[in-house]
Design a protein around this nucleic acid. Structure first.
Ligand SMILES: [Mn+2]
Ligand SMILES: [Mn+2]
Ligand SMILES: [Zn+2]
Ligand SMILES: [Zn+2]
Lengths: 132, 132
DNA sequence: CACTTTTTTTAGAATCATTATAAAGTAGAA
DNA sequence: TTCTACTTTATAATGATTCTAAAAAAAGTG
């Protein structure tokens, strides 16, 4: 199975549940954005059986810590995650409440002119809100 | 009282509670970032008496809708608001969990090269995460 | 293989920010 | 003052996330 290595490298044992989560998250043509609830439903439909929410939360957070997933900063009652961990930005369609990727090349280079003593920049994320 | 007009213009009656909230939010030298809980505590300390959470939520949301406050998109369990409603961006210090303003002039101009049919850009917000 | 130890999964409970409810209070109009 | 609509409030409900502790699975040992 192709995700055993990925899990082992992250210090996670390749359990049945984690492998299924990997498959749903990473065995896709395109990357995508999701909430925990989205992910849980997708798994339930594919397995005709569920993986407990606690396991999904734990695994997603482990992947996030390892850099296999990113959280997207957005104002929502649910947390949005992204399987696209490359350096990129987002449109947020306020009417449809949907996230759309903006590749780094879709946004001109961003210059941050202010410096904070003793701190370094970890990431620069742009959120472009859209309306009709 | 200087906020009566502001409230009336927004279709909000100038009640004792709303005037106090205005005073805490807008009668300051500098703009600031806050959560509902921050605001509630500040009021409690100043009045030696509280304004109910429901009223604070309702009023803050009314001000947000009128454009007197902005929400800041950030991953936190609490919603962050900003009394600075000008077009600007933020540093987020991951260690201190603190927001710092980045004036528009602190960030070079941002070019969004991708267009979405039938949608127009409402805002462009940059979040720069900082670490030690 | 047994048997023990460690890790993982799970259902359900707890937490906590936010929203809803509905009764009591208040502002503004007449 | 009186009437009515709006507002505040305490409290309950909601819902995402986190915690807990017991059962299940995996790993280690000889
Ligand atoms: Mn998290
Ligand atoms: Mn809101
Ligand atoms: Zn994305
Ligand atoms: Zn700000």
């Amino acid at each position: 199975m192709k995700y055993i290595e990925k899990l082992r490298n992250s210090g996670l044992r390749p359990t049945k549940q984690r492998l299924k989560i990997c498959e749903v998250l990473f065995d896709t043509e395109k990357t995508f954005h999701f909430t925990i609830n989205d992910l849980s439903n997708k798994i339930k439909k594919q397995l005709n059986n569920k993986i407990s929410l606690a396991t999904i939360y734990n695994t997603v957070h482990a992947f996030e810590k390892k850099g296999y997933l990113k959280q997207i900063p957005i104002n929502s009652n649910q947390t949005y995650f992204d399987t696209n961990v490359s350096d990129h930005h987002h449109f947020y369609d306020l009417n449809e409440q949907k996230l759309i990727d903006l590749e780094n090349s879709d946004v001109g280079p961003i210059k941050i002119l202010k410096k904070i003593e003793g701190k370094k920049i970890k990431s620069v994320e742009v959120l472009v809100k859209l309306e009709d």
